[in-house]
Simulated assay, not measured.
Amino acid sequence: MTGFISLAHGEGGELTHRLIADVFAKAFRHHEHMNLDAAIVHCGGGKMAVTTDSFVVKPVFFPGGDIGKLSVTGTVNDLAVSGASPLFLTAGFIIEEGFELRKLKRIVQSMAEEAEHAGVKIVAGDTKVVEKGEADGLFINTTGVGFKETPKVNGSNVKQGDVIICSGTIGDHGIAIVSARERLGLLTEVQSDCASLNHMIKSLLSQTEGIRIMRDPTRGGLATTLAELCEDLQLTVELQETAIPVNREVEGACDILGFDPLYLANEGKVVMIADASEEKRILEVLHENPLGREARTIGKVTTVQKGKLLLRTPVGTTRRMERLSGMLLPRIC
C-alpha cells in the first residue's frame, strides 16, 4: 500500500480492501463477519446487527434521489442483506459554511420520507459546520441498528451447485451519478436505483428457504462484491455474462464512456447465493415486488475451493474477474 491516501482508496475495490485489512481490521482486532455488510453482536438473549456508513456523493442531488435518501437506503440495505430487520438510525451532518438552507431542508425531508417508507426511526444525530472550502457542501454519516431475527443467512452453508441471483439491472446508480456530475442529460436519462430493500428482503426470508448469503453490491459493483465473497468463502463462481441484466441505456452509456457495468455502483440491488432447489421460488417472490421484477439467476457455484470469480462470455470463453483495481468513479455514494 502506498504512503498516501488516494481517491482510489474510496472506490470499494482492491485498495479499499487493503486499507481496511492493513489499517482498521488490524488495529481493532476484529475479523468476524467480514463477509457481511453489518456486524452481528450479541445483546442479552438475542442478536443485533449494527452498521455505519458515510455519504459524500457528488452531486448531492441526482436523478432518482439525493444524498439524504441515499444515506437512509444505504444503511437500511446493509442491515437487511445481513438478515436483520432495521429499526433505528442515527444521522451526523458535516455542513460546509455557505451551504444553502433550502437545500438542507430538502435533503432532510428526503431522509424523513425514506425512513418512514422503510419503517425505521431516526432517533439521534449531530451537526458540525466547517469553514468554506473545508468540505464540499454536505457530508452525512448514518448508523443503523436492527434485530437479527433469523439464522437463515449463513455463508458457511454454501455448497457446489448453489445459484447466484441478482435482484435486477446493474450499474444504474453509477451511470445516474456520472450523468448528473458531467451534465450528460442528452446522453442518458438513467435514474438511480436508490431504494430501501428491507421490505422485499423480509418477504423473501419469510417465504423461502435456502438463501445462503446476501450482499449489497454498492461501491465496486457486482464484480467486486462477488470477487470478495469468493475469496472470503473460498468459492469458485461462474457468471453467465448474457444472463446479467443491464438496462439498454446503461449499456449504451458504458460503451460511450468506456465503463464496465459489472464494476459500477448499485444502490437498490441485492445479490445472493442460494440453494438451487429454491431458485424458482426465490425468483417468484422477487418478481412479485416492483424492486425485484428484473431479478435473474446469473451464475452458479462450481466448486467450494480456490476463491475465484469467472465470467463466461457470449462466445464461450471464460475470464477471471478481480476486485476493482484503481479508480473508476470517485464519490459515488
Rank of each mutant, 00 (worst) to 15 (best):
I5S: 02
L7W: 07
E14D: 03
E14T: 15
L15V: 09
I20H: 04
V23E: 05
L36M: 07
I40L: 04
V50W: 07
T52N: 02
F55G: 02
F55W: 07
K58D: 10
G64E: 01
G64A: 09
G65Y: 06
I67R: 01
G74T: 02
N77I: 14
A84V: 03
G98F: 15
M111I: 15
E114I: 14
H117S: 12
I140L: 03
K152M: 09
V153K: 00
Q160C: 07
I165N: 02
I165P: 06
C166S: 10
I170K: 05
I177C: 03
V178N: 03
E182T: 06
E182Y: 13
R183S: 13
V190F: 03
C194W: 01
N198D: 04
K202W: 01
T208I: 13
E209K: 12
E231F: 14
Q234P: 11
V237G: 01
E238V: 15
T242M: 08
T242K: 09
I244D: 14
C254F: 11
D255P: 06
F259E: 00
L264E: 07
N266T: 15
V271I: 15
V271C: 11
S277H: 13
E279N: 08
R281I: 04
E284W: 11
P290H: 02
A295V: 12
T303Y: 02
L309Y: 03
P314N: 05
T317E: 10
E322F: 15
E322Q: 14
R331F: 14
C333E: 01
